[in-house]
């Protein structure tokens, strides 16, 4: 635990060595003493004690729990299925519209389906973020003055 330093002090005669051990405070890079304390406390505990307690349910409540989980999974499945069906319909209608366009005007169809290399999203799109901005609206916004060249 503690680093030991051997200090050899030379007494009056050079032939006589006294070995003395000095205990210093342990130094370890990166861990402050508080953190170290928590780490050593946790290392004493077994793995099972560090996990959250298992919920002990009586048989009736366990069956109720199973029922609730099942119903929730059914609801989610239904919702997902609905969403997938909607996407499928959207895709089908896009396809149909394109086929129509192809039969009516081939040039327009080709323009509409022209591949644009290096451009994955339209430039006008807002950059998608997980949350809205902290400042939703700039109330004090003043548009920059446009200098009109005088004639």
């Amino acid at each position: 635990m503690f680093s030991r330093q051997t200090v050899s002090s030379i007494s009056s005669s050079s032939s006589n060595f006294i070995k003395q051990q000095i205990r210093n405070k342990r130094t370890r890079a990166g861990l402050s003493p508080e953190v170290q304390r928590v780490v050593s406390q946790l290392s004493v505990l077994s793995a099972g004690r560090k996990q959250p307690r298992l919920l002990k349910l009586c048989n009736e409540d366990y069956v109720k729990h199973l029922t609730v989980t099942k119903a929730w999974s059914l609801l989610r499945r239904a919702k997902k299925q609905e969403h997938e069906e909607q996407l499928k319909k959207q895709y089908e209608s896009i396809k149909e519209a394109n086929e129509d366009l192809k039969s009516v005007n081939k040039a327009l169809f080709e323009v509409a389906n022209k591949p644009e290399f290096g451009r994955r999203f339209p430039l006008e799109i807002r950059v998608p973020t997980d949350y809205p901005t902290r400042q939703l609206w700039y109330y004090d916004y003043v548009p920059p003055a446009v200098e009109t060249p005088e004639k």
């Binding site: 009586c58 409540d61 109720k64 029922t67 609730v68 119903a71 929730w72 059914l74």
Partner: peptide, 22 residues
């Protein structure tokens, strides 16, 4: 000593009805 999980009594009838309808 026993206590039921919090909120189970509210959600269980709804879940039961969904499964019964199925």
């Amino acid at each position: 000593q026993y206590n039921s999980p919090i909120g189970l009594s509210e959600i269980y009838p709804l879940a039961y009805q969904i499964l019964e309808q199925e």
